[in-house]
Design a protein around this nucleic acid. Structure first.
Length: 605
DNA sequence: TCCGTAATAT
DNA sequence: TATATTACGG
């Protein structure tokens, strides 16, 4: 059974041949154990000193399947050995002792012992130790599928699995692992209904990926047509007509992406475009199209900058808008929880276009003043969000709520909420910019739409900044602290259920439901509110594939937590800003004059 | 047979 | 809902 990872030639008779390292300072026990273990057909190595054992293990990495160690040894505490083994080779370790005191046993378990045997040890206990090995292997495989335990796996399995392109396991590596798992766990697939291994990883179209996509589309469009794309929808459709999934795929040069993936996204994209165009036609029959002057270079990677978000009824019912951040998240569908709410995988939240906006309209469900919220899907702990800068007062300096060129080079003012928020990064300095604390900005129109000149995607005008301001201010300015909270954490109002604490946050349940109503209110009041996120064009390094462990699906995380609440509770602190180095943006990327926006509505549709 | 897309499934 | 998969016509 190669798939179990045993290198013994007698794999087929597993667990015979299990390679056991026994560590005990008492030679008598060593002898006894050796005999007993051999009777079990295990391959036994004995060692009287913990240090020797450790050396042996180090020298012969992969040479043992399991370690049985006494707790009390003169040269080294058994727990210490246990710890070392856990750190260095991740082998299952069984502790043994005459001392059955609960605290001792507990200590062993806490240190990672997979079992704690009381001396005298009986045959049947030894006979079953292979289970620990087997279990561990299974977990390792699962970890791999979660893209979590990849490294452990490599350590224990001769390191043949490689990452590709800096990404974690994709393409063939994944499938080969899956195959392996198929082979070794086919039986329990039937038992548990867990047929996950055959499912394909799902591509989440992150901003970056989408930008690549758009870039490819544009490129192809330019290549195949000499038309300028500056004139809106018409041209864009021309461009699109020229491109197909295959071409886009080639152009994107994302190795693990399939034509189907692209085709699927293209479908969505086209739908989006046509929707945009429709809206454009109906609302601006005279051709009230406004173009951004943002430089071409930035728009290459992003497309529309339609800033206004229309909360559609369906959106409202959902209450949460998912958005993929700049990292691509591929998740294994199989690993999803059965809970439908948790199916939404989440990606990494660099910026999240999908957000809910709650404004303080006369609505009993709103305890406080206006609150801006970004709906956020669950996000894996390792990819804590970046906050989309956001300000309920809609300062014009934010690219997504205004025409970028209006505020050239203007930096954001720091937010000093709770004294813990980010400070304005210095230009050129790498800093996280997840929080913005804009000052009230001059009222300007947020009527921006698409900025993709070269893409020629439909441009849409949605002036709403003033509208929003006039509406929101009168109801919400009373609580400036909340009012000006500019960013979000993972909030997801979709699920009206208690939130499990995750990482740095705690749950909150007391404001359940209010957001939806607010949104509904908002919608019903027909306020077009422009929200936006600064998006950055081609940050290739941000495009990552990461696997969301199954746990993440089942952990609602920060969803349902309102930002204001987090503030109130002091839950958001400085550290929030440093959660994920990999995902941070350099401040300079926010320069509205240099980077265009991405169309959030693409992700809402 | 391949490609792109509509329809459908998950 | 978003994406994957399938079906189907060119």
């Amino acid at each position: 059974m190669e798939s179990n990872g045993f290198s013994s030639p007698r794999n087929d008779s597993f667990p015979a041949g299990l390679r056991v390292l026994v560590v005990d300072d008492d030679p008598t026990w060593l002898k006894i154990l050796e005999k007993m273990l051999k009777k079990c057909s295990y391959e036994v190595t004995t060692c009287g000193l913990a240090r020797d054992a450790l050396n042996l293990l180090r020298e012969r990495k992969g040479g043992y399947d399991i370690v049985i160690s006494d707790v009390y040894m003169p040269d080294m505490d058994g727990f210490k050995l246990l710890e070392q083994v856990g750190l260095e080779m991740d082998l299952p370790v069984i502790m043994m002792s005459v001392d059955g005191e609960t605290s001792r046993v507990m200590k062993g378990v806490q240190h990672g012992a997979c079992d704690y045997l009381l001396k005298p040890i009986r045959m049947k206990e030894l006979r079953n130790i292979w289970q620990h090995v087997f279990r561990k292997k299974i977990h390792e495989v699962r970890d791999i599928e979660n893209l979590e335990g990849v490294q452990n796996f490599q350590m224990t399995r001769n390191g043949s699995d490689q990452y590709e392109d800096g990404h974690v396991l994709c393409g063939e590596d994944l499938t080969s692992i899956k195959k392996r798992k198929d082979i070794e766990s086919k039986h329990d697939e039937k038992d548990t209904g867990d047929y996950t291994s055959t499912k394909k990883a799902r591509v989440v179209w992150s901003v970056d990926l989408h930008q690549k996509f758009v870039k490819a589309v544009n490129q192809i469009g330019f290549d195949t047509t000499s038309l300028s794309c500056f004139d809106g929808a018409m041209t864009s459709s021309v461009c699109l007509a020229e491109v197909g999934p295959k071409k886009i795929l080639d152009m994107m040069n994302v190795p693990w992406l399939t034509r189907e993936n692209v085709a699927s996204h293209l479908q969505k994209y086209r739908l989006y475009l046509s929707r945009l165009q429709k809206e454009n036609d109906s609302k601006n029959p005279a051709g009230g199209i406004r173009q951004s002057d943002s430089p071409l270079r930035d728009s290459a990677g992003s497309f529309g900058s339609r800033n206004s978000i229309n909360l559609l009824p369906s959106d409202v019912s959902n209450g949460s808008y998912r958005f993929s951040g700049s990292s691509l998240v591929v998740h294994n569908e199989d690993l999803r929880s059965h809970d439908s709410d948790q199916k939404r995988l989440v990606s990494t939240p660099l910026a999240e276009p999908k957000r809910t906006l709650t404004v303080d309209v006369p609505n009993p469900c709103i305890p406080r003043s206006s609150q801006m919220e970004f709906g956020h899907p669950l996000a894996p702990p390792q990819s804590e969000l970046d906050f989309g800068a956001f300000d309920s007062t809609f300062p014009t300096k934010y690219p997504w709520c205004g025409i970028p060129e209006i505020q050239p080079k203007k930096k954001h003012d720091p937010l000093h909420l709770n004294g813990g928020f980010s400070h304005p990064p210095l230009p050129g300095q790498k800093q996280h910019t997840r929080v913005h604390c804009p000052q009230p900005a001059p009222a300007i129109s947020c009527a921006l739409s698409l900025t993709e000149r070269e893409t020629g995607f439909p441009v849409k005008v949605k002036p709403s900044y003033n509208e929003y301001r006039s509406n929101a201010n009168h109801v919400s300015s009373k609580d400036s602290a909340v009012d000006s909270i500019p960013f979000q954490t993972k909030t997801n109002m979709a699920n009206h259920q208690p939130v499990e604490p995750i990482s740095r946050s705690t749950s909150s349940t007391d404001n359940q439901g209010m957001n939806m109503n607010c949104i509904t209110e908002l919608e019903s009041s027909r306020k077009n509110i422009n929200l936006g996120m600064p998006l950055f064009t081609t940050l290739e390094e941000d495009l990552q594939v990461c696997w969301i462990p199954a746990d993440c699906y089942t952990n609602p995380g920060l969803q349902n937590i309102e930002i204001s609440e987090l503030f109130d509770r002091g839950l958001i602190k400085d550290e929030t800003v440093h959660l994920n180095d990999e995902l941070r943006f350099d401040y300079e990327f926010y320069d509205p004059t240099e980077y265009s926006l991405i169309d959030q509505s693409m992700f809402i549709a």
